[in-house]
Design a binder for these strands. Structure first.
Length: 281
DNA sequence: CGCCAGGGTCTCG
DNA sequence: CGAGACCATGGC
């Protein structure tokens, strides 16, 4: 068995591509976060992941160092947009996140920018989570903990109208209406249907959860960014959600979710770099 | 300061 | 099935 830590990774792209929202970069360029309730600190050296804190096995699994990145990138479409994204984001990985944490954060994600999803996530952790020794971030609260929260307290975390959805979903899970861990066995269409049964989970959010927490690497979340990109790929021809989903599945290949993530992160990075720097005084 | 953001849901045709 | 209205909030 080869050492999983010999696999390449772009740590910054992985942690800043809108999959996960609570990690922060330290002054020494290492990154700190929690994997479920385990404090972790990692850094990148020669395009490889190095563990400074936390169980290496748990970290290797969370960062999906076993994903066959060479095979995945070799299966990328040959079009210029996909290839440009591949070049720009080489080494980016799709994490294996805890089911509930991922579900909850993406319920709060609708019509929100990445920066604000992060601030909501941190506020929820601070208000309802548990402090852990060795971490300056609190755990994401369990659904049992959130099921007993008030909607107004959730709104105070900046959730707006999403507060009711998160609360109702937490209550359904607390009452045993769905077991997020047991449904891993379901085939993707059935699993997607199970997830969209939860308040605040439509097809797009379900695809995020499938991709980021259930290892369904062919799931393609179509948000406003990916919608625009698919539009361009189709020569400006728009379509219904179902048509675009079908197009993405065919066009982006067996690892369509990975391609989607590279396209998403690359497009956002480009826009960021186009933002003019603050003028000198 | 107006526009837009990793949308979901309900209604109405 | 498909299009539109509505929903809160903050970054930029």
């Amino acid at each position: 068995m080869t050492n999983p830590f010999s696999a390449q990774i772009d740590l910054k792209a992985t942690l800043q591509s809108g999959q996960v929202f609570h990690w922060h970069q330290n002054a020494d360029n290492s990154w700190s976060g929690l994997i479920a309730e385990m404090p972790a600190r990692v850094f990148e050296k020669d395009r490889r992941l190095v563990v400074a804190q936390g169980d290496p096995g748990v970290i290797a699994r969370h960062f999906a160092l076993d994903h066959p990145l060479d095979q995945i990138t070799a299966a990328f479409p040959r079009d210029p947009m996909s290839q440009a994204a591949l070049t720009a984001c080489e080494g980016m990985r799709i994490l294996r996140q805890p089911h509930w944490e991922c579900t909850a954060t993406f319920i709060t994600s609708s019509m929100k920018q990445v920066a604000h999803i992060r601030s909501m996530s941190l506020a929820i952790r601070e208000r309802f989570g548990r402090r852990v020794e060795g971490s300056n971030v609190s755990t994401y609260p369990s659904f049992d903990a959130l099921a007993g929260a008030s909607e107004s307290a959730l709104r105070a975390c900046g959730l707006g109208y999403r507060a009711g959805n998160l609360l109702q979903t937490a209550q359904i899970l607390a009452e045993g209406g769905l077991n997020l861990d047991a449904i891993v066995k379901q085939k993707t269409p059935m699993l997607r249907k199970s997830l969209t049964g939860l308040p605040g989970v439509g097809v797009k959010v379900a695809n995020c959860i499938l991709l980021f927490a259930y290892e369904r690497l062919d799931a393609v979340p179509i948000d406003t960014w990916i919608h625009r990109i698919l539009l361009t790929m189709r020569g400006g021809r728009d379509g219904t959600a179902a048509q675009l989903a079908r197009y993405a599945r065919r066009r982006l290949g067996p690892y369509a979710g990975y391609v989607q993530q590279y396209l998403f992160h690359h497009a956002r990075s480009l826009k960021q770099s186009k933002t003019p720097v603050a003028k000198k005084s």
